[in-house]
């Protein structure tokens, strides 16, 4: 029974990891660009939620608003800065986004202080569900359900709609897509905003579970990389599978060997790399 609790927890955390990894993957797919500031956008999502809730807004307003704010900020960054560096070698993509991550992290400390804080579970979901002798917090169930709906919606947008087709066309050949009359500059900004917005949303959803602190961004970045490496970059189901796998591993190990829980994630990644260098479901 205790394991069931841990496994449910793991699925919840894993779905958040999935959101992070898909955001990273979508950006990479279209822009061929690894966003080392991805964790920083997750951090911002969490802190915006924290700030809005502190100001007395309901979590149900704060959470989507925080994600939208991160999305807008990311799109703006893309327009002002990032589109100038796509042509450079990837060393400089990394340098710029690492710089961006440092700026965001330090700004967070300047604005909200170095200590972090807690976000209470939202009203209506602050209780527990009891089935037999299984007790589970309602908010965590909500996270699982909400991200599952979101995952399906996102998959439908990317695979089943015209917008998704344009984005995929752009990642195959930016030039040909532009020749068909689509404004690829605008698509790039929108996709970067969407990817970073997903990280922001993951941060907003994570805030009531794990609280906020200035260095949560870095942790998230490391995890997002692991999920992408295990699942295979560019694979939607791979990210889902790997996200849940990582979440469950972390959660179950946390009850068996608390200090080593995160160690096991990275160990798992090393094993996958040895056995399947392309990841579980990676294509190329």
């Amino acid at each position: 029974m205790t394991y069931l609790f841990q496994i449910f927890n793991g699925i919840g955390i894993g779905m958040l990891y999935f959101l992070l990894a898909v955001g990273l993957s979508v950006i990479f797919g279209l822009l061929q660009f690894v966003n080392f500031a991805h964790g920083a956008f997750y951090l911002l999502g969490a802190y915006f939620t924290y700030d809005l809730v502190e100001r007395g807004y309901s979590f149900w307003v704060a959470m989507p608003l925080a994600a939208i704010m991160v999305m807008a900020l990311a799109a703006l960054t893309e327009i002002v800065l990032l589109r100038r560096i796509y042509k450079l070698p990837h060393t400089f993509h990394i340098l710029v986004t690492v710089g961006l991550a440092l700026i965001i992290q330090e700004m967070t400390i300047i604005v909200w202080g170095p200590l972090g804080g807690n976000v209470p579970p939202p009203e209506g979901l602050n209780g527990v569900i009891i089935v037999g002798d299984f007790i589970y917090p309602e908010y965590r169930l909500f996270v699982i359900a909400f991200t599952a709906v979101l995952a399906v919606g996102l998959w439908w947008v990317l695979e089943g709609t015209r917008i998704g087709a344009i984005v995929r066309a752009g990642s195959e050949s930016s030039e040909n897509t532009a020749l068909l009359g689509y404004n690829t500059l605008r698509i790039n900004s929108a996709v970067f905003g969407l990817g970073a917005g997903l990280a922001g949303l993951a941060g907003a959803l994570a805030a009531p579970i794990r609280g906020v602190e200035p260095f949560m961004g870095l942790e998230a970045l490391g995890i997002a990389f692991v999920v992408v490496v295990i699942g295979g970059m560019g694979s939607y189901t791979g990210a889902l599978l790997a996200g849940i796998l990582v979440g469950v591993t972390q959660s179950v190990m946390a009850s068996l060997w608390p200090e080593g829980a995160r160690l096991m994630i990275y160990l798992g990644m090393a094993l996958v790399i040895v056995a399947m260098p392309r990841g579980l479901l990676g294509r190329a």
Binding site: V34, H90, I94, G222, R262, L263, L267
Partner: peptide, 22 residues
């Protein structure tokens, strides 16, 4: 290769950090 290589080295740096921490 390329960016995957970079991500792997970062993930390994996390691995060794948690190894030392654990």
């Amino acid at each position: 290769q390329g960016v995957y290589f970079v991500m792997l080295t970062l993930a390994f740096s996390q691995f060794f950090f948690f190894l030392a921490y654990s």
